[in-house]
Write a protein that binds this DNA or RNA. Structure first.
Length: 585
RNA sequence: GCGGCCGUAGUCUAGCUUGGUCAGGACACCGGCUUCCCAAGCCGAGAACCCGGGUUCAAAUCCCGGCGGCCGCACCA
């Protein structure tokens, strides 16, 4: 039976992936669990090569730090970050039509309650409020609802044996960076800007994960948190200002315009589509990264998230989308401008000062109004309360106090009436040598599982009934196949010797002597091996071998002596295949 | 979680309507022959009815439940 004609690329790739050991659903022998995959031998290498490329492309090139933090995270962290509040979705089911709705949204829509009001409500309160406000199902207008249930999409666990301490599986790696900010900043020798990256697993208890590698419950996230001073320009923007991107800004999206604008980074900044140059800079890099993984620029676009779609921490977010055969435009990375949100929250919650200090080139002298208590008057007037008043005075705006005293002759601090005699208001010249501020953050964030799938989809080609994975040479799991042309002892031995030589030189290389040579080439094409070396009669005579190119099937002949440096040139110095030797035939 | 469709060797599938042969094929894989530059051929081997329960003399087939997959709704920080 021929394979189905209707098979789309997703089906072809999942079939190939299972057959050749890239990836498959986990726990199949127990029936499988949705949202988990196992990467097989080839998939593991491919995914690692993509992650290594990310390391090279982002971390190494921009001098970032890479860290590895824990997946299990104490509850406090997600309380501070706002995740606990925002990951809870109270769902309620209509008992008549069995549709599910957000209980808080129903109250907002029908009872005109504000989101701050509904946010406070417990599940029980939601249930009673639904009845009180006479809420009906928007679908069938029934007023019979099941009890609302919270869906927390973070995985919950307890830390330690006695455990009052709730822990969560991190839904993003970013918090692991923010909580370590102080040490990382010190490590960076207190220089701004700087970036920290993390590659690791994240967990999201998705309600219904689907789409293979695209939406998983456990996945690998590659996060960059780039810290910068929002008052300083981005020094690298010039490098990429002429890079073109396809972009759908929120204003177009709201008008339901789905056609992206093709523009340069420079113009996108000028038009105000992107709120910080750092964000624009990483958008350009994200585009280049995907291009290097094999996705043509016209299959990529950036789409801005609307106000209500954005994460709670984000001032502006773009999804980087890639066009996929089955699902159309699909998110591969998110670029969020997180401002100082996370650091501020952790600062507030932990009490640790996360601000950085920056010295000005020249000290700035400023004049400012100060208000000082005159203790000689204040003390006798307020006795025990005097100390409290001194504290209160520190919190008020001296300028406001000054005008209040001028206009009404006193200021009220709580119940205390402060008269002009009690304080001294003066102008002071202050020399500011620098400033304290909370760094802002832009976050490009990729899923390496998704990238693995996307890379496979864009590499997948069918040529004359043969499957070829045109993987970029630097990420191909197997770099070289080595074959003896004939099953003759001398050739076998020679081929094995060459195989070992390349293996020892650090190449990932596979030896194969089974079946015909054509079959072996086909096997290698299917897993994306860029080069195959064949040992034939002539090898024994003049110590040359043929190298065959996956994409063109052309062959060149080259000497075994220079083989290692020739291959090194191809894989590491980007040398063209044609330059590897003299053409055959 | 709801609705629709679906689940047979490594992969793709036939058989299911109408219960009854050793569950058939193709490709892949393994061993051998072939001595070979693009999945050639020949011989041979291994390998499957998602799980549980029910109906029945008899279940891949019918019924129920579970798990899983795809699509739609919802969700997607």
């Amino acid at each position: 039976m021929e394979p189905k004609q209707t098979q789309d690329k997703y089906e072809k790739i999942t079939e190939l992936a299972k057959r050749r050991g890239f990836f498959w659903p986990s726990y199949e022998i127990y029936g499988g669990v949705a949202g988990f995959v196992t990467f097989g031998p080839l998939g593991t290498i491919l995914k690692r090569r993509i992650e290594d490329k990310f390391r090279d492309f982002f971390i190494r090139r921009f001098g970032m730090q890479e860290i590895e933090s824990s997946i299990i995270t104490p509850g406090k962290v997600f309380e501070a970050s706002g995740h606990l509040a925002h990951f809870k979705e109270p769902l309620v089911e209509c008992l008549k039509c069995h549709k599910r709705f957000r209980a808080d949204h129903l109250l907002q829509e029908q009872a005109k309650m504000s989101d701050t009001e509904t946010e406070k409500l417990s599940l029980k309160e939601l249930e009673t409020t639904l009845k009180e406000k006479d809420i009906h199902c928007p679908e069938c207008h029934s007023k019979n609802f099941d009890t609302p249930k919270q869906f927390l999409t973070m995985f919950t666990t307890t830390i330690g044996p006695y455990s009052e301490a709730t822990g969560y599986g991190r839904p993003e790696a970013a918090q692991g960076i923010f909580v370590e900010f102080k040490r990382l900043y010190e490590y960076a020798r207190e220089k701004m800007p700087f970036g920290v990256a993390q590659i690791g697993h994240a967990l999201r208890n998705e309600i219904s994960p689907r789409q293979g590698l695209i939406r998983l419950r456990e996945f690998t996230i590659m996060d960059v948190e780039y810290f910068f001073d929002p008052e300083e320009p981005c020094p690298w923007i010039k490098q990429i200002e002429n890079e073109t991107i396809h972009i759908i800004p929120a204003e177009l999206k709201k008008k339901n315009i789905k056609k992206p604008i093709k523009t340069t980074i420079k113009k996108a900044m000028e038009k105000g589509y992107v709120k910080t140059p750092w964000q624009a800079f990483f958008m350009a890099q994200a585009k280049l990264f995907l291009t290097q993984l094999g996705v043509p620029p016209d299959k990529q676009r950036f789409i801005e998230k609307l106000e209500w779609e954005k994460a709670h921490y984000s001032l502006q977010s773009f999804d980087q989308e890639i066009y996929l055969d089955r699902w159309g435009w699909t998110e591969v990375s998110g670029l969020a401008y997180r401002t100082d949100y996370d650091l501020s929250r952790h600062m507030e919650s932990s009490g640790v000062d996360m601000r950085v200090y920056k010295e000005y080139e020249k000290p700035i002298t400023k004049e400012r109004t100060v208000i000082k208590p005159v203790m000689a008057k204040l003390g006798p007037a307020f006795k025990k309360d005097a100390a409290k008043i001194v504290q209160l005075l520190q919190k008020i705006n001296p300028k406001d106090a000054e005008t209040a005293l001028e206009k009404q002759g006193f200021i009220m601090l709580e119940s205390f009436k402060i008269l002009p005699d009690h304080v001294k208001i003066s102008k002071e010249k202050i020399e500011e040598k620098g400033k304290h501020f909370i760094p802002h953050v832009v976050e490009p964030s990729f899923g390496s599982d998704r990238l693995t799938y996307i890379t496979l989809e864009y590499a997948y080609q069918q040529k004359e009934d043969r499957t070829v994975l045109k993987l970029p040479r630097e990420i191909a799991p197997i770099q070289i196949g080595v074959f003896p042309l004939l099953n003759r002892d001398e050739l076998l031995k020679k081929a094995q010797k060459i195989h070992k030589k390349l293996f020892d030189a650090g190449f990932s290389v596979e030896y194969d002597d089974s079946g015909s040579v054509g079959r072996r080439y086909a096997r290698m094409d299917e897993i994306g091996t860029p080069l195959c070396i064949t040992i034939d009669h002539q090898t024994l005579k003049d110590k040359t071998v043929t190298i065959r190119d996956r994409d063109t099937r052309k062959q060149v002949r080259t000497s075994t002596k220079r083989l290692i440096s020739t291959l090194h040139d191809y894989f590491h110095n980007n040398k063209r295949f044609e330059e590897l030797g003299t053409p055959v035939k």
